[in-house]
Amino acid sequence: MTADGTTGGPFAGSTDRPAPQPPGPWRRGLRGWGGVGAMAAACALALAATLTLTCGFGGPTAVPGTADPAARARQASTSSCDAQNMAQSLPPSQAAGPAVRRIQQRHELIVGVDQSSYLWGYRDSTSGQLEGFDIDLVQAIADNLLGPHPHIVYRAIPTADRFTDIDNGSVDMVVRTVSIACSRMSVAAFSTAYFEAGQQMVVARDNTTITGYDSSIRGKRVCVADNSSAQQLLGQQSYGARQVTVQNQLDCLVQLQLGYADAVFTDNALGAGLAAQDPSVHLVGHAVNPEPYGVAMNPKDTDLVRRVNAVLQTYRQGGWQRSYQHWLAKDLPGISGPPPAQYKS
């Protein structure tokens, strides 16, 4: 929702951020689509009142992306996609078009994933298998497309290659904690949002000084992944913290454990993955800068986008909750369900 202007460099690790993109020609086609869900309506109301995004987590939170005049100007000029309607996707459909048939005739689904995001997509070193919240979703999609015991090719792809791999057809979709953003609409079509994450602090449990992304981090060493939106946020509002930069957010946990950093500022979805790997650290304070995750596909594969949305429609009714309970509830408690689906009309 807010990540406009943040850049996703090649080493952004698992915290992926959209890179600014020029408005593509097809975006004009979005004009006039409505279908705003309840949550987006609330957001729109709040935005109208304060020009500040307040939906999502806890109390009202300033969002630099929209408070920034340049970002506002860009949103005004590309009114077809904005923070309110970017999570809207094509209405669900089980119909098989060329993309779905391509996958079915191949008898395998090729998915770009991460293999080191604990709880989301990671390789269990003892079984050698990929597991996690994202992988459960891939399994549900593959079951729907290919029937029972589907053949799935998991390609561990670097952050920098996600959209080029979609574009050149080397993967059918990317399920890798990809945040939905207007700047990415020209390179990817997104499913409806299946999770909503935000930036949050991770600290040692015995650290009572740091209470969240606020003035309590003054003078502290805060670790961020290079090119992450946490890094950008901290650059805009540091609260007097000193920034420790590493290649990806998992490296931040190493820094924290070795005592080279006092806190990690990261996507809370991935922060939960850090907390799950080290029982002596946890997430503190509120998440800021909410952003929805979606399944990224090729914009040409409209039938596949509709099909995945149909899968998600069912998945929201039970599969999602089971997966959430299994992977995330312990370290990311208090989420009652998936964000509601929003469709283009």
Binding site: S116, S125, T126, L250, L253, V254, G273, L274, Q277, D278
Partner: peptide, 20 residues
């Protein structure tokens, strides 16, 4: 040793320690 211990528990953190 940290990388090994994490790897034995199936934690991706081990790979970060190994790279470090």
């Amino acid at each position: 040793e940290s990388a090994r211990a994490d790897n034995r528990q199936g934690l991706p953190l081990g790979s970060s320690y190994l790279r470090y």
